[in-house]
Amino acid sequence: MVIDDDSTFLFIFRKQIEKFEGGKIVNESGNGSEALSFLKNLAPTADHMPDLIALDLNMPIMDGWDFLDEYGKLCADGVIKAPVCILSSTINQADFDRANTYEIVKSFFSKPITSDQLAAMEKISKVY
């Protein structure tokens, strides 16, 4: 599952996943709020239950941080436990540090995303 408001990035990411052949995108959400409503309405056994959430930070309506707070509550309820990887254009150390404070965030990738990073994401999705 990928959460990002940048349609061009989504286009490229989609193409990268197709080439990588290591997985598929079960959902694309334009912001945190959309993503949350998708996740809340998911049945625990649904076949498009995400194994990993790729999250952008700078988004309208509900940004990545607010999403993380809400998603944390969702995980606590035990409905879902997919790990989160942050995909962002930021190069600000403060953002890295802040992301580190969330236990559910397993990795932080700066855009552009490389095939090595996709491999790492696949690994993460399997470990957790």
Partner: peptide
């Protein structure tokens, strides 16, 4: 600003 500049540039190289 750096974020907003990086985003389209990384997209360009990705495209």
């Amino acid at each position: 600003a750096s974020h907003n500049l990086r985003a389209p540039v990384t997209n360009l190289s990705g495209l």
